[in-house]
């Protein structure tokens, strides 16, 4: 169908962004080589966190607690640093529209996260609340939702 220009002349033709992938993973899916690479490597990093935590739980009587605490503390950070690095490579490999959409989603997420972080910090300071910083993980689904809304503009 795509090879026939007569089928492709409508100015309002749907762009077919992969909405499910965008909402679930915040990217355009593994159809492209860079998409496949990012999908595989980011999932390996997430899997490594799970494996590490399971191993720590299984070996808790074997390895010293200080080492176990250290590994448990740095593993998620290291894994997500790797995911962020792979995301940077992934976005760099995208074409300019897809890349600008990713940047816009990241920008909107940051702008939403900033007041939330300040609010939580203020509440924690004023009322001595213990803020659980794992709320930060919710930024990824938020970025995916923003990417979905941005992609709707180009449907």
């Amino acid at each position: 169908m795509d090879n026939d220009p007569s089928n492709d002349l409508s100015a309002n033709r749907n762009s077919h962004w992969p909405a499910v992938w965008i909402l679930l993973y915040g990217n355009y899916g593994p159809r492209s080589p860079e998409g496949r690479r990012y999908f595989v490597r980011s999932n390996i990093a997430l899997f490594a966190i799970v494996v590490c935590m399971v191993l720590l739980a299984l070996l808790r009587h074997v390895i010293p607690m200080s080492i176990a605490r250290l590994v448990a503390a740095i593993t998620p950070g290291v894994a997500f640093a790797y995911i962020a690095w792979e995301y940077r490579r992934y976005v760099s490999a995208l074409d300019e529209l897809a890349r600008s959409m990713q940047f816009e989603a990241v920008a909107w997420t940051y702008l939403c996260a900033l007041p939330v972080a300040m609010l939580l910090g203020g509440l924690g300071f004023a009322y001595h609340w213990r803020v659980n910083w794992y709320w930060f993980v919710a930024l990824e689904p938020m970025r995916a939702v923003w990417l979905y809304f941005v992609s709707r503009r180009y449907q």
Partner: peptide, 18 residues
């Protein structure tokens, strides 16, 4: 087609459409 032009330019078809 949009897809052919996109391939020649090294961008996605969505970019051409947009």
């Amino acid at each position: 087609s949009q897809a052919e032009l996109a391939e020649k330019l090294g961008v996605s078809r969505q970019t051409i459409n947009a």
